[in-house]
Design a protein around this nucleic acid. Sequence first.
RNA 1: GCGCCCGUAGCUCAGUUGGAUAGAGCACCGGCCUUCUAAGCCGGGGGUCGUGCGUUCGAAUCGCACCGGGCGCGCCA
Length: 569
Amino acid sequence: MNPFETLSAPILAAFSELEPDDLVFAPPPKLDMGDVALRTFECARKLKMPPPAIAARIANEVAFGPDVAEVSTAGPYVNFKLDRAAFGRAIVAEALGRGAGFGSNGSGAGKRALVEHTSINPNASPHVGRARNAMLGDSIVRLLRFEGYDVEVHYYVNDIGRQIALLVLACDDPASMSFDDMLDVYRAANARAEAEPEFAEQGYALLARIEEGDAETRERFHAITDLCLKGQVAVLARLGIAYDSFDRESDHVRDPRLEPVVEALRERGAVFTDEEGRLSVDLSKLGHEHDEGRYIALLRSNGSSMYAYRDVAYTIDKMERGADLNLIVLGEDHKLHMQQIALILDAAGKAAPEPVYYAYILLKEGKMSTRQGKVVLLSEFLDEATARAAEKVDEQCTDLAAEERAAIAEKVAVAAIRFAILRVGANKNVVFDWESSLSFTGDTGPYVQYSCARIASILRKLAAQTGAPAPTEVAGEFPVETDAEWALLTKIASLHETVAAAVRQRSCAPVAQFALDTARLFTTFYHECPVIDAGSDAQRNARAQICMATRQAIENALGLLGIDALERM
RNA sequence: GCGCCCGUAGCUCAGUUGGAUAGAGCACCGGCCUUCUAAGCCGGGGGUCGUGCGUUCGAAUCGCACCGGGCGCGCCA
């Protein structure tokens, strides 16, 4: 697993106080200092000795195996020169041996996870801001599955809100509507509600009727929300995003499981009826310390449910499914609300899901707004990106059939958007810019895909020459002579650490960084280390296998991001 | 006003639980396609890590204050 166990084992044997986690190996700043470095600050703390003294003792007193060529110190660091061939062979053997599972730590083996993400209101075509939720959620799902979790993906369909009622009112004849009309209809309905209070009143009346269980009204809502949901899911499917369960909010307007919760709140003295007759909660009685968000209403005076009620009910429903890990991906605007829900549930001795928040994607002109039509639609972006990618593919892959070229172009477009979104930390606002988003050069998904296409090309040509694909079994000599090869190999070996960090952070951003770093190191290798024209059979074979291991590492990393590695582009 | 998030090169961002000289890309300048795909590579300029105190052997990273941006505090969800 860890290729540096050969280094850590003798150190642990010599210092019984130390544990494996105290030994942190990393590449030195310059490869001429050593092939790998150990820093001794952690050990020093534990052994209560100055770091340089520890470093000296490790260098002078510990007996390392034959794979360690030289041990030196540089202040608090111990630098090792290694038998690169031995380590390189082990790394490649591990990557090729584990294949699609390479980099997984198996931390989710035997565990179940439930992830709710996307949950866009079923009104109009999703914009790229909404899609950030979907991409973040989907990548976390992929990450958890990679780690061995059995994951269920849930999508909460908000099918009974005020905004939906307005949309329903505006669609007299749902059968004649298409999803593409919805954005305009939605916009117009909101504008009308703004101008005509009676129209907005009709919306509330409609909501009341569906809560009463009126079947015809329910049908009307479903017809519209289904149309919207199908359209939205189809766009998200282009990004490779799929769901296991669509849970309708309208199924949670009445729930007997809320009774014990309200009872628990009552016992804490946290329930009261407000001046408008609403059943409300005073969260200050539950430990909420601030004025803002202190009160939250559950039921209207007429007994109809408010969103907080439905959210509590739905959350209970999800939690009772018994997953070991429960996550929900939410825009940062939902922070307070989620805290409120969690407090209410906690008062009743129930747990809430762990939230993963993200900040908004902004336009140069300000924030996006579906109602005002100030948006960049996801489908619009994908179409434009695909068209741009197609130009390049058409000129570069002239031997491929048109459908094949089109499929590649679409995958490049998906890579561009997913990589651009997933590589930055979720809690950072990003400003959407058409020009840079459509650029496929530099730190981009297509750049990473390109490195895979080059690997595939080398291996294709090599196989054509020798008449057989390069073997996946690592055997015989394994020369590793250049820094370019070594740097690439140690990067590949670090994938499992990156994955572990991603799981801790609930974010695939480190994985995107890994893919980029690996692609860059490969490109250096590509320019410096000829494979087909290598100096010897052994070197050709070793380099071909380094290529395969690299492809496996990048492919696995891209897989977590929902991006396909490409054979050709 | 109160709470949460963010502030690193002209621009967009990395920077694992504090650790060796703060890294990429874009843009700019100079090289490289009879050589495994130039969606590429090599070299160059460019930084008071928002500001100020503090904790520490050591701070972009931790704490406090301030400044700037985002979000929230609804019979919207």
